[in-house]
Design a binder for these strands. Structure first.
Lengths: 235, 235
DNA sequence: CAATTACTTTTTGTATGCAAAAATGCCGGA
DNA sequence: TCCGGCATTTTTGCATACAAAAAGTAATTG
C-alpha cells in the first residue's frame, strides 16, 4: 500500500535540517495535545513535563510559547500554562475560518494542481474508500487528512498552508472524541466523492462550495461529540 | 478628536492582567520588526538585543519563539534567528490569505455589527477622510488600520481576528516603505467610500468583493514599493 | 466550626553558567 | 593575491541556580 508521506513538519521555516531539542519538544508537545493525551485545560507543570519529555525547563518553556502563539496552550501570567480548552464556541469559530481557508485552497488547487497531483489525490481517495468499506476508522481518518492536506498543498501558497495547519490542529483535537455514526460517515464519504469530481473537472467554484459544506457537516459532528462529552462529564 | 483605542493586545489569551517581562518583550520585538526598525533579514543577536530591551536572554528567546510562530522571525538551527525576509512572493501569498479572511469578516460583520458599531466605523471613516484631505499620511494610515480592525472585530469571531492580526502584521511591515502616489491614494479612499456604503446597507456579498479588490490594489502598491526598494538596493 | 492569617512548600519567571557549534581572524602556501 | 586550514573568539543551545509569586497547610481566633 503506497503511503504518501505527510509533510508533518513543524510550521516554522528552518533553513538547515539539524533538529534542535526545543523543536522536537514543540512537536512532541503538540502531538500530546492534539491526540488528547494532555486533556483540555490540563495544567502544564514545567518540572514534570520537562522530565517526561527528557529535557530541562528552558526548551520546554520555549516550546510552550510557540504553541501559545498557535493557540494550543494558554498562558496564565505567573501561573504557567494550560492546554487550551475545547469549547464549542471556539470550535464554531475555527470551523468558520477553516471553511474560508479551505474554500480558497480548493479554488486555487483547481487552477494550480498538476495532473499528477490530481492523480495522487484520487489515489488517496480510493485508499480512503477502501478503509471506509472495511470500517477502519483510524486508517480512514489518516487518508482523509492526507487528502485535505494535499488539496491545501496544491494551492501553492505556503502561507495559506501554514494558517490552515494551525487551524486544523484544533479540529484534529476534536476528532479524537468524535464517534462517527455509520450514516454520517457514509455522507462524508459521499461528499468526498463530489469533491474529487469537482477537482477532476477543475471546477473551482463548485469545489469551494463542497468544501464549505463538508466542513459545516463536520462541525455538526464535532459539536455533537462535544455535547456528548459534556453530558458525560456531568454524570 | 475621538481616538477609539485599538485593542492592540498580544494575540495570546492572558486570563490575568499582570504583564510579564517576556510578554512585553514579545510586543516590543514585534513593534521593532513591524515598524522596520529591525530590517528584514537582520540577524537577532541575543546578547545585544537582550541588553537593548533591558532583559536577559531567556525571556528574549521565548519571545523569539513566539514570533517565529507568527512568521515574523525565522529560526536557523544553531545560528539563532533573523527577522523574516520581505519577499514579493511572500507578500502575494499573504495578501491572498488576507483577502479571504477580510472577505469572510466583511460578510460576518454585515450580519453581526450593531448600529453603534457601524456608526463608529463611519465616524472613523470621516476622520480618515479628513486626514486624507490634509495629506496627512501617517494619521490616514492610523484610521485606515482602525477601520479594518473594527470590521474584523464586528465579525464577532476572535479566532478570525487573531488569524487576521498575524497576517496583517506582515502587511504593516510593507506599509512603512510604500510611498503612495496621490492618484493611488485617492483610489483607495474611493474604495473605502464604497465599503462603508456596503456596510451601511449590510450588503455582505458586495462588501466581500470590495474588500478583496481593495486588498488586491493594496498588493499592487506594496509590490511596486518592494520593487523600488530592490532597484534602490542594487544601486 | 468557619475564616483568617502566618508559615511552609511548590511553582513560576528570570538570570547566569557552561558546553558545543559557528563565525572570525590569522597565517602560510600556492 | 587568493585560498585553505588552524586557532581564537563569539554566539547559540541547554541546564541550572536563584528570586518572586502562588498554592498549600496548619494554627489561631471570633
Amino acid at each position: 500500500m503506497p503511503d504518501i508521506p505527510m509533510p508533518q513538519a513543524s510550521s516554522v521555516t528552518f533553513l538547515a535540517e539539524r533538529r534542535l531539542l526545543h523543536e522536537t519538544v514543540i512537536d512532541q508537545l503538540r502531538d500530546l495535545i492534539v491526540q488528547g493525551e494532555l486533556a483540555p485545560e490540563t495544567k502544564l507543570n514545567e518540572r514534570v513535563l520537562a522530565e517526561r519529555l527528557g529535557t530541562s525547563r528552558t526548551p520546554l518553556r520555549e516550546a510552550i510559547k510557540f504553541l501559545a502563539s498557535e493557540g494550543l496552550v494558554e498562558l496564565l501570567p505567573n501561573r504557567g500554562a494550560v492546554v487550551a480548552a475545547l469549547k464549542p464556541e471556539k470550535m464554531q469559530e475555527v470551523f468558520v475560518v477553516l471553511g474560508a481557508l479551505e474554500a480558497l485552497a480548493g479554488d486555487l488547487a483547481c487552477r494550480n494542481a498538476t495532473e499528477a497531483d490530481i492523480a495522487d489525490i484520487r489515489a488517496l481517495h480510493y485508499h480512503m474508500l477502501a478503509h471506509h468499506a472495511r470500517g477502519e476508522l483510524a486508517q480512514y481518518f489518516r487518508y482523509n487528512q492526507q487528502i485535505h492536506q494535499r488539496i491545501i498543498d496544491c494551492a501553492g501558497n505556503a502561507t495559506l498552508a501554514q494558517a490552515w495547519r494551525a487551524m486544523n490542529a484544533h479540529v484534529k483535537r476534536a476528532r479524537y472524541l468524535a464517534n462517527l455514526s455509520r450514516e454520517r460517515w457514509d455522507k462524508a464519504v459521499k461528499e468526498h466523492e463530489d469533491m474529487i469530481d469537482a477537482l477532476l473537472k477543475r471546477d473551482g467554484a463548485r469545489l469551494q462550495v463542497l468544501l464549505r459544506d463538508h466542513l459545516s457537516n463536520k462541525l455538526v459532528m464535532v459539536m455533537e461529540a462535544l455535547q456528548a462529552r459534556k453530558t458525560e462529564a456531568a454524570r
